[in-house]
């Protein structure tokens, strides 16, 4: 671009000088706006071209790339820092989530273990109780059986004793020697042994 601009400015100076000559021919000096004083055009155009091209070169080659670099670098840095912060935040959140999960797992575990312990204890107690109860029930049944047997035996003896008693009573009272068989028949007939 600078080369093109230089050519351009050279052409412009040419035109400017032509115009200047035209003005000179027309306006024989004296008064007039300084801006329209044509002989001054050429030096202004020349120095404008020189300074502008030089300034453009310095700006585009030295000054602006530096500023742009610094700004770009800062933008990158901020972007990077932001990204890092974002990543750290995500990691923290993940850690927090895993911690909470571990906590709730532990809690669930604890309650499961407690329940299991309770259940197993309960079962054991139940078993023991059942065993004891069974034993007791068996003993009770044995005892009841023994009692029944004794009762039956006693009742049977009662009949004998009653018969003997009746024979002796009858013999004593009425001098009748009733036999044991007769007494038993009489008792049976009266339904007393019921």
């Amino acid at each position: 671009m600078p080369a093109a601009m230089t050519a351009l400015v050279a052409a412009a100076i040419d035109v400017g000088t032509d115009v200047a000559e035209a003005f000179d021919a027309h306006d024989a000096g004296g008064g007039g706006l300084p801006q329209l004083h044509a002989p001054d055009f050429a030096p202004q155009l020349f120095w404008l071209a020189v300074t502008f091209v030089l300034l453009y070169w310095i700006m585009s080659k030295i000054a602006l790339p530096r500023i742009g670099e610094v700004i770009e670098e800062r933008k990158d840095r901020i972007q990077r820092d932001l990204a890092a912060a974002e990543r750290l935040k995500a990691e923290t959140e993940k850690a927090l989530a895993s911690y909470e999960k571990a906590l709730s797992d532990a809690r669930a575990n604890a309650s499961t273990i407690a329940r299991q312990t309770r259940e197993s204890l309960n079962a054991e107690v139940e078993k023991d109780r059942k065993a004891v109860e069974d034993q007791l029930a068996r003993k009770l049944a044995d005892a009841e059986a023994a009692i029944d047997a004794t009762k039956t035996k006693a009742l049977a003896s009662v009949k004998d004793i009653a018969g003997d008693a009746v024979v002796s009573i009858v013999g004593t009272l009425s001098n009748v020697n009733a036999t044991k068989d007769e007494i038993a028949r009489a008792l049976a007939a009266s339904g007393a042994d019921k």
Partner: peptide, 28 residues
């Protein structure tokens, strides 16, 4: 054959050039 005299206008153009360049380069 062209008049390229260093005028007061040129002086301020060069001054601007120097000021801008030194400022931007020094600042950075």
């Amino acid at each position: 054959g062209y008049d390229i005299s260093f005028t007061n206008s040129s002086l301020f153009m060069v001054l601007a050039l120097v000021l801008i360049s030194t400022f931007l380069i020094l600042a950075m």
